[in-house]
Nucleic acid binder design. Structure first.
Length: 414
RNA sequence: GCGGGUGUAGCUCAGUCGGUUAGAGCGCCAGAUUGUGGAUCUGGAGGCCGUGGGUUCAAUCCCCAUCACUCGCCCCA
């Protein structure tokens, strides 16, 4: 039976769920459009090197979560685990650096070979934005404001909180890293096994640990904010001042660290309590060094990505689809006329459903189940009289309407 | 990748201290109602009891493995 199961961590998205996803993406798409961002679609796979270079060889995504395979011609290919790498690659390979600043959004599937949980899938979907070529704090502010507006429009603003931190510039980061390393090395015995490993690979991550013992050690650790260079500190306060100006509420979280190596300066996360262990619903930050690291010209960038499944779980309900009008033939003789009528109404812009068989009772049942607003009943009597019977399925009232005037009669429900 | 929990009808779940034909509600199909849906009543279909192996006279039940889901960790959207 194994071959008839979906691959672990993948899901079929059926119409009901699809509506929720679409509500999320359409809302985000509309708002991103209002900010002047244009949609881009990069391939869902790239040469493995693209991700290795952007994400950093030591990141978890690269070391253990990528879907990597060899193509028939022997190329190393990877299903994209996130969206930024592909866009930066497109920027470079397409010579888009000529047109900076670039304002892009994207939407689509991402792949990570992780152990699935609620809100964590192996194929999942993200909506993200990237602002390339803007090094000023205004870029960070705009992008965060857009995120806040989207979450608000989705009705989840109340159930999420924005946390924000500065990772400084490379100089700040290096200085702080040394200090932190010194502090933590002295207390090595008190750290969890995981964190002792992190000491060598990515000590900043220890700040984020959920282990009780680690938290106690970290509580008294030197703060990153004390080691920001003047420039970096100024940048960050410009960002927070801009958010204040817009009335965007946030919490400073000096322990907030991002997993991907390329982030600098602003890092932020919108999180929720409602999703269990997977609390992050939208996250991003600034990545000024990334384009250059990939071989392009020095280009600042800032952006974020949101988990569509996670947002879809958080929203109350997607707006119900437009209620159809059911065309119901009575008896075999009316079948063709009814089908033609349905087609005519569809061409006129109505949402029309017509059953594929069964008697009147059966078809009415079906109309009811489809939440049809009206039934347009067409039998031999009506055909003779040049009319149809229009039944209001909410009130149960029905009347005869001349075929000629049907379109106008139905107009309110188009 | 590590640790815990759970897999019985399309869905939600009973159940068998190992013993003939495995149940309910909802949903589905049909009829009551061959020109009228929602409500009601009647009937019906639908189960390799996740999969494979083991123990046993006998396994849906016990044991092992495996797959999937789920909770937590790691990490992240």
């Amino acid at each position: 039976m194994r071959s008839l199961q979906p691959v672990r961590g993948t899901h079929d998205i059926l119409p009901e769920q699809s509506l929720r996803h679409r509500h999320v993406t359409e809302t985000a798409r509309t708002i991103a459009g209002q900010y002047g961002y244009g949609e881009v679609a990069t391939p869902i796979f790239e040469f493995t090197e693209v991700f290795k270079r952007t994400l950093g060889d030591s990141s978890d995504i690269v070391t253990k979560e990528m879907y990597t395979f060899e193509s028939r011609s022997g190329e190393e290919i990877t299903l994209r685990p996130e969206g930024t790498a592909g866009i930066v690659r497109a920027l470079i390979s397409g010579g888009l650096g000529q047109h900076l600043p670039l304002k892009f959004f994207y939407q689509g599937p991402m792949f990570r070979h992780e152990r699935p949980q609620k809100g964590r899938l192996r194929q999942f979907h993200q909506f993200g934005v990237e602002l390339l070529g803007v090094g000023a704090p205004l870029g960070d502010i705009e992008v965060i404001a857009m995120a806040a507006q989207i979450l608000d429009a989705l009705g989840v603003a109340d159930s999420t909180t924005l946390e924000i931190n500065s990772l400084g510039d490379p100089q700040s980061r290096e200085a702080y890293r040394d200090v932190l390393l010194g502090y933590l090395s002295d207390l090595k015995d008190k750290l969890s096994e995981d964190s002792r490993k992190r000491l060598a690979v990515n000590p900043l991550r220890i700040l984020d640990s959920k282990d009780e013992g680690d938290r106690r050690v970290v509580a008294d650790a030197p703060l990153f904010s004390d080691y920001l260079t003047g420039e970096a500190a100024e940048f960050f306060s410009a960002v927070t001042a801009g958010l204040d100006e817009l009335g965007i509420i946030y919490a400073l979280n000096p322990k907030l660290v991002r997993g991907l190596d390329y982030y600098c300066h602003t890092a932020f996360e919108f999180t929720t309590e409602a999703l269990g262990a997977q609390g992050t619903v939208l996250a991003g930050g600034r990545y000024d060094g990334l384009v250059a690291a990939m071989g392009g010209a020095e280009t600042p960038g800032v952006g974020w990505a949101a988990g569509i499944e996670r947002l879809a779980m958080l929203i109350a309900d997607a707006p119900a689809p437009h209620r159809p009008i059911a065309v119901v033939p009575v008896g075999g003789g009316a079948e063709t006329a009814a089908f033609n009528l349905a087609q005519e109404l569809r061409r006129d812009g109505f949402t029309v459903d017509i059953g594929y068989g069964g008697n009147l009772s059966r078809r009415m049942k079906r109309a009811n189940k489809l939440r049809a607003r009206l039934a347009v009943i067409l039998g031999e009597d009506e055909i003779r009289a040049g009319t149809v019977t229009v039944r209001d399925l909410d009130t149960g009232e029905q009347e005869e309407v001349a075929l000629r005037g049907l379109r106008d009669h139905l107009a309110p429900w188009r």
